[in-house]
């Protein structure tokens, strides 16, 4: 684990300058967001149960959380399958998903220094948004779980590549829905009531929305209010369930890969 994480760290440090783009893109998007919400909140205290301050915290934290948990596991696995390079992983002693997870760890350590920290400081000093979680330990637990959740969901999308040769279109559609349904563009409480109820039973809220609400110190979706320990508990159960699904899909995928032959 350590060696592949370190190797990825080194490989990506060649592209560290690409990460610097995040220092522009993140704050610029946030500036737009904050202008939108300041306009919308004119003459109002609360919108959908959130104050302006909470709303800005939501979007700033969403930006930062993304730097901590994002990965390209879906793209990477599909690319390996499509180009035939995946075969080299069948003969390695380490399973590919473990390798990919180590890669993610290495990559995100880099992201922590070159995306998360500078943007955090920009939010703090430029936009005066003090981002301190209400319950730091619960938040740490929740963000670790969403780190795993994000990986598993993306990896499952990658596994689809075993069945579909041209899975790129599906992958891209899925990414859009993943981000919408995880609450990256808008808090999920803005969605229609029925929609929220469905979302409650999908894995996506555990990627961004749950850690964001844990960060803010209160959780609410589809009218359910829940204490922080219980939602993190549910998140842990969801990660466990997702592990089962990923393992199952992985086994089926490998069977298909070796069955069909190369």
């Amino acid at each position: 684990m350590k060696s592949s994480a370190v190797a990825t760290y080194k490989e990506w440090s060649a592209y560290r300058s690409h990460m610097l783009l995040s220092l522009v893109v993140g704050p610029v998007f946030f500036l737009v967001q904050s202008s939108i919400w300041k306009a919308v909140f004119q003459g109002r205290e609360l919108v959908n149960g959130l104050s302006l301050e909470q709303m800005l915290t939501y979007f700033a934290a969403a930006t930062l959380i993304y730097y901590l948990i994002m990965d390209f596991a879906d793209w990477n696995l599909q690319m390996l399958i499509r180009t035939g390079k995946f075969i080299t992983f069948i003969i390695r002693p380490m399973s590919h998903w473990f390798f990919a997870f180590s890669q993610k760890v290495g990559h995100r350590v880099l992201g922590l220094f070159f995306e998360f920290l500078p943007v955090y400081l920009m939010f703090l000093f430029l936009f005066k948004i003090p981002l301190i979680p209400v319950y730091p330990l619960w938040f740490l637990l929740s963000i670790s779980l969403s780190f795993i959740m994000m990986f598993q969901i993306n990896y499952c999308v990658g596994i689809i590549g075993f069945w579909l040769v041209q899975a790129e279109g599906i992958r891209r559609v899925f990414l859009i829905f993943r981000d919408i349904l995880a609450g990256a563009f808008l808090p999920l409480s803005f969605f229609p009531e029925l929609f929220q109820k469905i979302l409650f039973f999908l894995p996506f809220q555990f990627i961004s929305y749950v850690p964001l609400r844990v960060f803010m110190g209160n959780y609410e979706l589809a009218g359910f209010e829940m204490s922080i320990p219980s939602i993190v508990g549910i998140q842990a159960l969801a990660v466990l369930a997702m592990t089962g699904i990923t393992t199952l899909l992985w086994k089926l995928g490998i069977k298909r890969f070796t069955g069909v032959g190369v």
């Binding site: 004119q42 559609v173 859009i176």
Partner: peptide, 29 residues
């Protein structure tokens, strides 16, 4: 055609967000 469809979905995200904001009873002045 898959490419075009994906792109259209992507382009509709911002209008959808605007729609959801207005739906919740607020507006740009």
């Amino acid at each position: 055609f898959i490419g075009i469809t994906v792109m259209l979905i992507w382009e509709m995200v911002v209008p959808m967000v605007v729609f959801l904001i207005y739906r919740s009873g607020v507006a740009f002045p």
